[in-house]
Design a protein around this nucleic acid. Structure first.
Length: 468
RNA sequence: GUCCCCAUCGUCUAGAGGCCUAGGACACCACCCUUUCAAGGUGGCGACACGGGUUCGAAUCCCGUUGGGGACGCCA
């Protein structure tokens, strides 16, 4: 049997971290088994669903690198089918019309809460009542008949066997009085119609699984395998929400998080493979399974994400990183980029990347390669160049540099050290002013590397400006 | 309130009865390396929620307590 998983978000907001992880797990499980990863947009609540949210979900998944195998299903378009199933169940006597008014329901809810707080709200008053009793002028909703006695056990691939006594489950509505299907019905019918074999979702749905299981049974369909993964919590241990600054994945993209880092981070939240921490996606596909998913909720930890991001930045492809920095640099400032900016970045980005945690930081520190002399100097750099003696030294060094034939890092290293030695200076006494002159800052990659990347012409130009 | 789930360093986790004086990673601290900042290296700090069982032996199994979370809509 081919594995078919699904990611089924309701398009009422952006693709948040929790949804992203659910999608990742579904995707990984499908890829691991050579199955299909499908998408279903649960837009049956037309009032809350928006096109922007739908677009945000698609874009978020694309950014994460999670590709889907079929045309996405829009649940709202299947309403006729859902309704037909409800009618069928009604005809078979597995469901019934309920004529309760909203006030009656409210009363029952109040009752249940005050008298013991039972989870079972609806008392089943129309379950066996003669339809002839139906009050005039009330459109009935359709409810499914749930078992009255015994208990139900779900064999969950993550949670294990979970049992609930049936008297805690009431007859829930599958078709509203206005003829629209409820979520519970829509999910079951669509999962069946799409051939979903594994339902991997947040464990806030665990309670729904019991209801859905009986709906599958009523339809004489096989219940898919369930895997309810724990939710992601905020730093305070409660369900991640906007209050925690929970953001959509696009916000992480903007702050310069790499998709590979996000995937790795999300994967390790609740899933593990021994002591392995850095797990490339190909490796994750090979290793991923549901047995190794933990059952306790994990807290979102930005430090960890940043650390992983720094790792992927350090090992990133220079050409790709360069393209990203160029894109972020474009239009950022009024200054025009050096014609050599891109070439310098390709050479300089590896040295820069090990000093950055995000693409934003990377592009900030890239500015030393982006523009030609004269440079903007920060305070520390200005201070380093304030000393006339230091400037005189730089001028002397510039003369030596001008005559250098082979302009590479090793040669520059040799030359500058030699220069320091002849003038009886510590390397730092030469290197720091040099750094200030060449980068406009007191912080940068190794100064010989900077000179090599900049090239002889630009290096001398910057020195000329700094010593003028 | 009722039902369901969970419980190892601050955080993510390893651990499936003896390999555990509990391992790794992030964060933090110190030192080393060093032309700055990082990176890297070395070391340090730091946890089996509690109480009962079961067993020769329990972080691992069972029960209870406590704590946390989730669900209780004609929302999804």
């Amino acid at each position: 049997m081919t594995v078919v998983t699904r990611f089924a978000p309701s398009p009422t907001g952006f693709l948040h971290i929790g949804g992203a992880r659910t999608a990742l797990f579904n995707w990984l499980y499908a890829r691991h088994h050579g199955g299909e990863f499908t998408l279903r947009i649960e837009d049956t609540d037309l009032k809350r669903s928006t096109d922007e949210a739908i677009a945000a979900i698609f874009h978020g998944l694309e950014w994460l690198g999670l590709d889907w195998d079929r045309e996405p299903v829009f649940q709202s378009r299947n309403a006729d089918r859902h309704r037909a199933v409800a009618e069928q169940l009604l005809a078979e006597g597995k469901a019934y019309r309920c004529y309760c008014a909203p006030e009656e329901l409210a009363e029952m809810r109040e009752n249940a809460r005050t008298s013991g707080g039972s989870t079972r709200i609806y008392d089943g008053r129309w379950r066996d009542r003669d339809p002839a009793d139906a009050p005039a002028g009330i459109d009935p909703a359709i409810r499914i008949k749930m078992p009255l006695t015994g208990d139900t056990t779900i064999a969950d691939m993550v949670q294990g066997e979970v049992t609930r006594t049936n008297d805690t489950l009431d007859d829930f509505i599958i078709l509203r009085s206005d003829g629209t299907p409820t979520y519970m019905l829509a999910v079951v019918v669509d999962d069946h119609d799409m051939g979903v074999t594994h339902t991997i979702r947040g464990d806030d749905h665990l309670n729904n699984a019991f209801r859905q299981h009986h709906l599958f049974a009523a339809c004489s369909w096989e219940t898919p395998k369930f895997a309810h993964i724990p939710l992601i919590h905020g730093a305070d241990g409660t369900k991640l929400s906007k209050r925690h600054g929970a953001l959509g994945v696009e916000a992480y993209a903007e702050m310069g998080i790499l998709p590979a880092a996000m995937r790795n981070y999300l994967l390790r939240l609740g899933w593990s493979h021994g002591d392995d921490e850095i797990i490339a996606t190909e490796q994750a596909i090979e290793w991923f399974d549901l047995d190794s998913v933990g059952r306790s909720p994990a807290r979102f930890d930005m430090d960890r994400l940043l650390n992983l991001n720094a790792h992927y930045l350090k090992n990133g492809d220079p050409a790709a990183l360069t393209a990203d920095v160029m894109a972020r640099a474009g239009g950022a400032t009024g200054k025009s980029l050096s014609p050599d900016a891109e070439a310098r970045l390709v050479a300089g980005v590896p040295g820069l990347a090990q000093r950055a945690n995000t693409l934003v930081e990377l592009s900030e520190i890239s500015s030393l390669y982006l523009y030609d002399a004269p440079l903007e100097m920060n305070e520390k750099a200005q201070a380093a160049l304030a000393d006339p003696e230091a400037r005189a030294r730089l001028s002397a060094l510039a003369d030596a540099l001008e005559n250098l034939k082979l302009w590479d890092e090793a040669e520059l290293d040799r030359l500058v050290r030699e220069f320091a030695e002849t003038h009886d200076l510590k390397l730092g006494q030469v290197a720091q002013p040099l750094r200030a002159a060449l980068t406009g800052s007191n912080v940068s990659p190794g100064i010989f590397e900077v000179m090599a990347v900049l090239g002889q012409v630009e290096t001398l130009a910057r020195l000329a400006h700094a010593t003028a």
